[in-house]
Nucleic acid binder design. Structure first.
Length: 203
DNA sequence: TGCCAGGCCCTCTTTAGGGCCTT
Protein backbone atom coordinates (compact mmCIF):
# COMPACT_ATOMS: atom_id res chain seq x y z
CA UNK A 1 0.00 0.00 0.00
CA UNK A 2 1.04 3.61 -0.53
CA UNK A 3 -0.42 5.40 2.44
CA UNK A 4 2.79 7.34 3.06
CA UNK A 5 3.44 8.26 -0.56
CA UNK A 6 2.84 11.53 -2.35
CA UNK A 7 2.36 11.95 -6.09
CA UNK A 8 3.32 15.33 -7.56
CA UNK A 9 1.66 15.67 -10.94
CA UNK A 10 1.29 18.04 -13.88
CA UNK A 11 -1.00 17.94 -16.91
CA UNK A 12 -0.49 19.46 -20.33
CA UNK A 13 -3.92 19.95 -21.89
CA UNK A 14 -5.70 21.28 -24.98
CA UNK A 15 -6.96 24.30 -23.02
CA UNK A 16 -8.15 25.53 -19.66
CA UNK A 17 -11.47 23.84 -19.08
CA UNK A 18 -12.63 20.23 -19.33
CA UNK A 19 -16.19 21.61 -19.09
CA UNK A 20 -15.58 23.28 -22.45
CA UNK A 21 -14.35 20.08 -24.07
CA UNK A 22 -10.64 20.34 -23.30
CA UNK A 23 -8.70 17.11 -22.77
CA UNK A 24 -5.34 16.05 -21.36
CA UNK A 25 -2.48 15.56 -23.84
CA UNK A 26 0.32 14.70 -21.40
CA UNK A 27 0.64 13.59 -17.79
CA UNK A 28 3.87 13.76 -15.86
CA UNK A 29 4.20 12.71 -12.23
CA UNK A 30 6.76 11.89 -9.58
CA UNK A 31 6.11 9.68 -6.56
CA UNK A 32 7.95 10.47 -3.35
CA UNK A 33 8.16 8.53 -0.12
CA UNK A 34 9.83 10.01 2.95
CA UNK A 35 11.19 12.83 0.86
CA UNK A 36 12.81 10.49 -1.67
CA UNK A 37 11.77 10.08 -5.31
CA UNK A 38 10.81 6.45 -5.89
CA UNK A 39 9.00 6.39 -9.25
CA UNK A 40 7.96 8.62 -12.11
CA UNK A 41 5.27 8.53 -14.80
CA UNK A 42 5.35 10.35 -18.13
CA UNK A 43 3.12 9.80 -21.13
CA UNK A 44 1.71 11.72 -24.09
CA UNK A 45 -1.87 10.87 -25.06
CA UNK A 46 -4.10 11.44 -28.07
CA UNK A 47 -7.05 13.70 -27.17
CA UNK A 48 -8.94 12.64 -30.30
CA UNK A 49 -8.76 16.00 -32.07
CA UNK A 50 -6.14 18.44 -33.32
CA UNK A 51 -4.61 20.78 -30.76
CA UNK A 52 -4.32 24.51 -31.49
CA UNK A 53 -1.19 26.30 -32.62
CA UNK A 54 -1.22 28.13 -29.32
CA UNK A 55 -0.97 24.87 -27.37
CA UNK A 56 1.71 23.56 -29.75
CA UNK A 57 3.76 26.70 -29.09
CA UNK A 58 3.05 26.80 -25.36
CA UNK A 59 3.92 23.17 -24.63
CA UNK A 60 6.23 22.21 -27.47
CA UNK A 61 3.90 19.25 -28.03
CA UNK A 62 2.83 19.06 -31.70
CA UNK A 63 -0.03 17.30 -33.44
CA UNK A 64 2.65 15.18 -35.11
CA UNK A 65 3.95 14.06 -31.71
CA UNK A 66 0.47 13.06 -30.55
CA UNK A 67 -0.28 10.99 -33.65
CA UNK A 68 -0.15 7.31 -32.76
CA UNK A 69 -0.02 7.95 -29.01
CA UNK A 70 -2.35 5.91 -26.78
CA UNK A 71 -5.77 7.35 -25.98
CA UNK A 72 -6.55 9.42 -22.89
CA UNK A 73 -8.58 6.46 -21.60
CA UNK A 74 -5.66 4.05 -21.83
CA UNK A 75 -3.13 6.44 -20.29
CA UNK A 76 -5.39 7.65 -17.53
CA UNK A 77 -6.30 4.10 -16.63
CA UNK A 78 -2.61 3.35 -16.13
CA UNK A 79 -2.13 6.61 -14.26
CA UNK A 80 -4.99 5.74 -11.92
CA UNK A 81 -3.08 2.59 -10.95
CA UNK A 82 0.11 4.67 -10.51
CA UNK A 83 -1.43 7.11 -8.02
CA UNK A 84 -3.12 4.36 -5.99
CA UNK A 85 -4.09 5.83 -2.62
CA UNK A 86 -1.32 8.45 -2.60
CA UNK A 87 -2.00 12.03 -1.66
CA UNK A 88 -1.56 14.46 -4.53
CA UNK A 89 0.25 17.76 -5.11
CA UNK A 90 0.18 20.10 -8.09
CA UNK A 91 1.05 23.72 -8.79
CA UNK A 92 -2.32 25.49 -8.94
CA UNK A 93 -3.92 22.17 -8.03
CA UNK A 94 -7.46 23.34 -8.81
CA UNK A 95 -6.50 23.20 -12.50
CA UNK A 96 -4.93 19.71 -12.47
CA UNK A 97 -7.66 18.36 -10.18
CA UNK A 98 -10.35 19.42 -12.66
CA UNK A 99 -8.62 17.50 -15.46
CA UNK A 100 -7.81 14.45 -13.31
CA UNK A 101 -11.42 14.30 -12.10
CA UNK A 102 -12.81 14.77 -15.62
CA UNK A 103 -10.58 12.15 -17.25
CA UNK A 104 -11.14 9.58 -14.50
CA UNK A 105 -14.90 10.24 -14.50
CA UNK A 106 -14.96 9.13 -18.15
CA UNK A 107 -13.48 5.81 -16.96
CA UNK A 108 -15.80 5.58 -13.93
CA UNK A 109 -12.67 5.72 -11.78
CA UNK A 110 -11.82 7.84 -8.75
CA UNK A 111 -9.04 8.15 -6.20
CA UNK A 112 -8.88 8.24 -2.42
CA UNK A 113 -5.99 10.66 -1.84
CA UNK A 114 -6.33 14.35 -1.08
CA UNK A 115 -4.95 17.24 -3.12
CA UNK A 116 -2.64 19.97 -1.83
CA UNK A 117 -1.59 22.97 -3.90
CA UNK A 118 2.04 24.08 -4.05
CA UNK A 119 0.99 27.52 -5.29
CA UNK A 120 -1.29 28.18 -2.28
CA UNK A 121 1.52 26.89 -0.05
CA UNK A 122 4.07 29.19 -1.72
CA UNK A 123 1.75 32.19 -1.36
CA UNK A 124 1.90 31.61 2.40
CA UNK A 125 5.54 30.61 2.83
CA UNK A 126 7.09 33.00 0.30
CA UNK A 127 4.85 36.03 0.67
CA UNK A 128 7.58 38.34 -0.63
CA UNK A 129 8.19 36.43 -3.86
CA UNK A 130 7.60 38.66 -6.90
CA UNK A 131 5.16 36.15 -8.39
CA UNK A 132 4.00 32.65 -7.53
CA UNK A 133 4.34 31.13 -10.99
CA UNK A 134 6.20 27.82 -10.86
CA UNK A 135 9.16 28.99 -12.97
CA UNK A 136 9.52 32.24 -11.04
CA UNK A 137 9.47 30.44 -7.67
CA UNK A 138 12.18 28.05 -8.89
CA UNK A 139 14.36 31.05 -9.77
CA UNK A 140 13.40 32.89 -6.54
CA UNK A 141 14.68 29.92 -4.49
CA UNK A 142 17.77 29.43 -6.70
CA UNK A 143 16.70 25.85 -7.45
CA UNK A 144 18.76 24.50 -10.38
CA UNK A 145 16.80 24.15 -13.62
CA UNK A 146 17.46 24.40 -17.33
CA UNK A 147 14.43 26.63 -17.87
CA UNK A 148 12.59 24.07 -19.99
CA UNK A 149 9.19 24.54 -18.41
CA UNK A 150 5.77 23.49 -19.76
CA UNK A 151 6.36 19.79 -20.28
CA UNK A 152 4.51 17.61 -17.82
CA UNK A 153 7.31 15.49 -16.32
CA UNK A 154 9.72 18.43 -16.13
CA UNK A 155 7.16 20.67 -14.42
CA UNK A 156 6.25 17.90 -11.97
CA UNK A 157 9.96 17.41 -11.18
CA UNK A 158 10.34 21.14 -10.56
CA UNK A 159 7.21 21.13 -8.40
CA UNK A 160 8.72 18.32 -6.29
CA UNK A 161 11.88 20.38 -5.76
CA UNK A 162 9.83 23.44 -4.80
CA UNK A 163 7.63 21.35 -2.49
CA UNK A 164 10.58 19.75 -0.65
CA UNK A 165 12.27 23.17 -0.39
CA UNK A 166 9.16 24.67 1.19
CA UNK A 167 8.92 21.84 3.73
CA UNK A 168 12.60 22.22 4.58
CA UNK A 169 12.28 26.00 4.97
CA UNK A 170 9.32 25.57 7.32
CA UNK A 171 11.21 23.00 9.39
CA UNK A 172 14.22 25.27 9.72
CA UNK A 173 12.33 28.52 10.31
CA UNK A 174 9.97 27.09 12.93
CA UNK A 175 12.05 24.30 14.46
CA UNK A 176 9.69 21.51 13.41
CA UNK A 177 10.95 17.94 13.08
CA UNK A 178 8.28 16.67 10.75
CA UNK A 179 5.51 18.17 8.64
CA UNK A 180 2.52 15.93 8.01
CA UNK A 181 0.23 16.20 5.01
CA UNK A 182 -2.62 17.14 7.35
CA UNK A 183 -0.51 20.01 8.73
CA UNK A 184 0.10 21.20 5.16
CA UNK A 185 -3.65 21.12 4.49
CA UNK A 186 -4.29 23.24 7.59
CA UNK A 187 -1.51 25.66 6.60
CA UNK A 188 -3.02 26.16 3.16
CA UNK A 189 -6.36 27.08 4.77
CA UNK A 190 -4.71 29.53 7.16
CA UNK A 191 -5.08 33.21 6.18
CA UNK A 192 -1.78 34.61 4.91
CA UNK A 193 -1.50 37.15 7.72
CA UNK A 194 -1.87 34.35 10.32
CA UNK A 195 0.66 31.89 8.85
CA UNK A 196 3.53 32.93 11.13
CA UNK A 197 1.40 32.56 14.25
CA UNK A 198 -0.02 29.23 13.03
CA UNK A 199 3.42 27.72 12.44
CA UNK A 200 4.80 29.05 15.72
CA UNK A 201 2.02 27.18 17.52
CA UNK A 202 3.00 23.83 15.94
CA UNK A 203 6.11 23.33 18.07
C1' DT B 1 -10.67 30.64 -36.90
C1' DG B 2 -11.26 32.34 -32.48
C1' DC B 3 -13.00 31.81 -28.39
C1' DC B 4 -13.75 29.61 -23.71
C1' DA B 5 -13.00 28.46 -16.79
C1' DG B 6 -12.66 28.59 -12.02
C1' DG B 7 -10.71 28.96 -7.27
C1' DC B 8 -8.15 32.02 -4.38
C1' DC B 9 -7.41 36.46 -2.48
C1' DC B 10 -7.21 41.44 -2.01
C1' DT B 11 -9.78 45.73 -1.50
C1' DC B 12 -11.82 51.46 -2.81
C1' DT B 13 -15.52 44.23 0.17
C1' DT B 14 -19.45 40.90 1.68
C1' DT B 15 -25.96 43.19 -2.72
C1' DA B 16 -18.46 43.30 -6.34
C1' DG B 17 -14.69 43.58 -9.23
C1' DG B 18 -10.37 42.30 -10.79
C1' DG B 19 -5.57 40.21 -10.70
C1' DC B 20 -3.16 35.87 -10.14
C1' DC B 21 -2.33 31.07 -11.60
C1' DT B 22 -2.99 26.82 -14.51
C1' DT B 23 -3.20 25.16 -20.53
Amino acid sequence: MQANSLVVLDFETTGLSPNMGDRAIEIGAVKIKNGEITESFSQLMDPGFRITGFIEDYTGISNHMLKGMPSCAQVMGEFSDFIGDSNLVAHNASFDKRFLDAELALLSKSYSGQFACSMLMARRIYQNAPTHKLGDLIRYKNIPSDGGFHRALYDSQMTVKLWLTMLEDIKQDYGLKDISFSLVKKLIKTPKKSVHEFLNNQK
